[in-house]
């Protein structure tokens, strides 16, 4: 069901001035209809009251917010810098690993040929040498988690 002209006029009036001024039918209707004119006055009064309501945010709140935002911005910048360094390190490690693997692979193949060792054996030796640092580090971490941790003096009274 379509709203009647009075309802339509009130709906338009509730949207604020530009909608009243740009619609000739509404201006004509307001000249003819006293009830809608009263509504328009009431709406205009309410809107004026809303616009005139004073309001202020404390300076202390603004300053506190600015400080928090600056501190957070600094933290985020540091985090981004750290992430940048980590990414750079990851790239460097990847390149170094690729280079070292290629050198070791060819080195062990050459040694195998020189000493007439079977290819699978020289490949296994290369794998063992390649994995040795990781194995040593793993053992150290395990020891730190069990044996070395127990050997430290306790902080508990």
């Amino acid at each position: 069901m379509k709203p009647d002209i009075h309802e339509r006029a009130k709906q338009q009036l509730a949207l604020g001035e530009p909608f009243v001024l740009t619609q000739p039918w509404l201006q004509v209707h307001l000249q003819e209809c006293a009830a809608c004119r009263d509504y328009a006055d009431g709406a205009a009064r309410a809107i004026r009251a809303l616009r005139s309501q004073p309001f202020a945010a404390d300076s202390a709140l603004v300053q506190a917010t600015q400080m928090r935002v600056r501190a957070r911005a600094l933290e985020l910048r540091r985090r981004r810098e750290r992430l940048g360094i980590v990414c750079l390190c990851a790239v460097a490690v990847t390149l170094a690993s690729a280079f070292t693997t290629a050198v070791l692979w060819n080195g062990f193949l050459w040694l195998g040929q020189q000493w007439r060792i079977h290819a699978p054996l020289s490949q296994f030796a290369m794998l063992a040498v390649g994995l040795l640092p990781a194995i040593v580090v793993s053992i150290l971490f395990l020891a730190r988690g069990t044996h070395l941790a127990d050997s430290r003096p306790s902080l508990q009274p």
Binding site: A56, L61, V62, T65, Q66, V69, R70, A73
Partner: peptide, 10 residues
């Protein structure tokens, strides 16, 4: 950000 906080405070 400082300017925006100031501008939109109220």
């Amino acid at each position: 950000l400082d300017r925006l906080i100031e501008q939109y405070r109220h």
